[in-house]
Design a protein around this nucleic acid. Sequence first.
DNA 1: TGCAAAACGGGGTGGCCCTCCATATCGTAC
DNA 2: GTACGATATGGAGGGCCACCCCGTTTTGCA
Lengths: 204, 204
Amino acid sequence: MPLDSRTTSPARPMRADARRNYDRILAAAAEAIAEHGAEASLEEIARRAGVGSATLHRHFPSRQRLLEAVFRDKVEALCAAAADLAVDPDPWHALVTWLGAVARHAVSNRGLAASLMRGAHDGDPALGDTCHTMIINAGADLLARACRANAARPDVSITDLLKLVNAICLAVEQEPDGAAQADRLLTLALAGVHPAGESAGRKM
Amino acid sequence: MPLDSRTTSPARPMRADARRNYDRILAAAAEAIAEHGAEASLEEIARRAGVGSATLHRHFPSRQRLLEAVFRDKVEALCAAAADLAVDPDPWHALVTWLGAVARHAVSNRGLAASLMRGAHDGDPALGDTCHTMIINAGADLLARACRANAARPDVSITDLLKLVNAICLAVEQEPDGAAQADRLLTLALAGVHPAGESAGRKM
DNA sequence: TGCAAAACGGGGTGGCCCTCCATATCGTAC
DNA sequence: GTACGATATGGAGGGCCACCCCGTTTTGCA
């Protein structure tokens, strides 16, 4: 798993000490975020990692960057899950299952939802494959398949769906039974509020 | 409009200077929140109001309290709108219209959504009629009417709906075209993602 | 082994939230 | 009008934070 482009690209490899500190910070950040959420103190992360705060800021110029690095492997797992589901015989079921998985990850990794959402607009434009675009690409296939099977409305975009999922997770993030609530709300949103779902539901 | 219980209840009226500062802080907070969202600096609000930070903290022991005071009249407007819609001949339309209004308010008053959501659990329990419960009560009637008319699924609660609305607003809050996106997502969630909305949409 | 480039981190700056307490102001009783 | 207790004030200060500067150390290559 590439931790940083410079660790893999031959352009200019990281120095050994830099690499070591990078990894330490990442590990400390994962711990801290699990405990205190995405708002964890950067200074405490540096302290835990045994590096100066300047070193943390040099490796990760913004909190967003750090979150992306920490969550990258989790995001990759989601992308893999999407690939697996791409062969599910029921495209709608595949889509719904995957969105549920996204929601579960987002709820259990506090701050993932917010982090991914922010990535959409105020992240550095230079950063090509952020977690955000990775997830979008993974989901787009599932949605396209569902559309082709006429199982999803054609005017729905994957961005819409992911925003909905992230919105829900963001909202229930700090409730005790977040996972259950997220599941409930997501099901509700996907099914619609109308009892039989006839077209009246769309006239709004 | 009651600004503080002590301004109306005969128990112990506020002193004139206290009242003046209370109003100034409220006005400054409204300005600051409109500019910087609900995370606006409390110190800056105090500065704008021309009072010391201690005075702000005395009048509003928590940020939540301040937000509630600022948003109270807006919330009251929403409650009034709900009352008006309660006589709409089409209960589903009334419900949807009202939720749309809630969303519009939440988007245009950055932080309202988050503020109301937080009010649900970590607000002081002593605070009886928070904005949160005011809105819940207002919406419950509309939903009940829609249910009675078989226009909304009976297993949906007003809490679910409001959470959904707030989630959406929270998520699109800092996008440039927030209002449009919120509308889009809300419509989507209410209608469901399925094209015709047949029961498959609910099996998830 | 020598040395330039790369990386480091202590400490400073400025911001934030919140609290204490000496001081100023208000409302009332006379 | 004045005196006085209750009430309200706000500046100073503590603790925490993000972020940056720059003298020092480490690294890796020649």
